[in-house]
Amino acid sequence: MFTGIVQGVATIARISDRPGLRSFRLQFPDGFAHELAIGASVACDGVCLTVTELHGANEADFDVMQQSLSLTTLGHFREGDTLNVERAAKDGAEIGGHPLSGHVDVTAEVESIRQPENNHVIRIRVPGGWMRYIFAKGYIAINGASLTVAEVNKAENWFEVWLIPETLRMTTFGDKAAGAPLNIEIERATQVFVDTVRDALEERLGPLLPALEKLLASQGQTLDTLASPVPLPKG
C-alpha cells in the first residue's frame, strides 16, 4: 500500500528491452533507497513496481511486463526522463494523502495549464466512463500523488487540480505540458460506492431506468448525480 505522498523524483538511468518485458534502472534522490531491498515495492508515477536488483546506494532495477506498459504511461518513457516515486507504506505510517494500491485504472491527458499567482492549475481530460467516479472535493491519485479534485465538468470529461509550490517542488508536475499522459488511480471507496448505487438503481428500476436517465438529462444531470458520495474530511 502507498499513501499518495510523493517522496522524491527519480531519473531513468537505463532502459533495456526483452521480448514482452522492459527493465528500468532508476536513480533515486540521496537517502530514498536507504535499506531498500530486492522484492520491495516502489510506486513509480503511481505504478507499483518490484525491485529486482540494487546498484550502489541510489539505483535499482525494475521489470515491467507488456500489459503494464500498454495500460500505463511507462511505455512512453525514455532514458533521462523523471518520475514520481514513493516507498511502500510501513505499518503505522501516517496517511497524509489517501490509501493507494499502485494499480493504475486509466490513463488521462493534460488538457491545459494555467498559473494564478503562487498556484498551478492542471485541467485533465479523462475517458468518459471514468468521470462517474470523480467528484469535486473528492480524492484522486495522479502519477502516484494524492490530490483533491477542485472542479469537475462531467459533460466535457475534465476535472482540475490546484497545486501549491511545495507539490511542484517534490513532483514532476511542473514539467508537464498540454498533451502529457498521466496515470490515474480512482479512490477505491468512491468507486465501490458509485457502482453499488448504480447497481441498486438498475436492479430496482429495471425498464424504468432509461426514463429516469432522460429526466435527469433534461435537468442537466446524470445518473451519477444520484450516486455522488458526500466527501469526508481528510485526516
Rank of each mutant, 00 (worst) to 15 (best):
S101P: 04
Q221D: 00
E202M: 04
T190L: 00
P116R: 05
F24I: 11
S146M: 07
N118L: 08
V110D: 14
P165Y: 03
I142P: 00
L36Y: 06
S112L: 11
R22I: 03
N84Q: 15
L232T: 07
L74V: 04
L147K: 06
C44S: 11
W158K: 05
A93S: 10
R22Y: 04
D175Q: 11
T3H: 10
N153I: 00
A217K: 15
D105A: 07
G206V: 02
G46M: 10
G174T: 03
A43F: 06
A88N: 08
A57K: 13
G20L: 04
A211E: 14
N119Y: 09
E111G: 08
K90S: 12
T107I: 10
N183I: 04
T222L: 02
G56E: 13
L36K: 03
S228A: 14
A189R: 13
Q191S: 05
K154N: 14
R114M: 14
H55G: 00
G96K: 11
D105M: 01
Q115R: 11
L182E: 04
T148M: 14
L216I: 07
G102A: 01
A89G: 07
K137L: 14
K214L: 08
Q7M: 10
G56T: 09
D91V: 12
L201A: 09
L54V: 02
V51H: 00
V6T: 13
R198S: 01
T3P: 02
E213S: 08
A155L: 04
G97P: 01
R18G: 11
I38A: 11
N143Y: 06
E86I: 06
V42R: 01
I95Y: 01
G97T: 04
H76T: 15
K214Q: 12
R78K: 13
A13G: 08
S101A: 09
F62T: 12
M131A: 03
L83N: 09
E53M: 06
D17T: 13
V149R: 00
Q115C: 09
Q67H: 14
E156I: 01
A43D: 03
F2R: 13
V6S: 00
I134R: 10
A178R: 13
D175Y: 10
Q221M: 14
G75Y: 01
K154A: 15
G46Q: 06
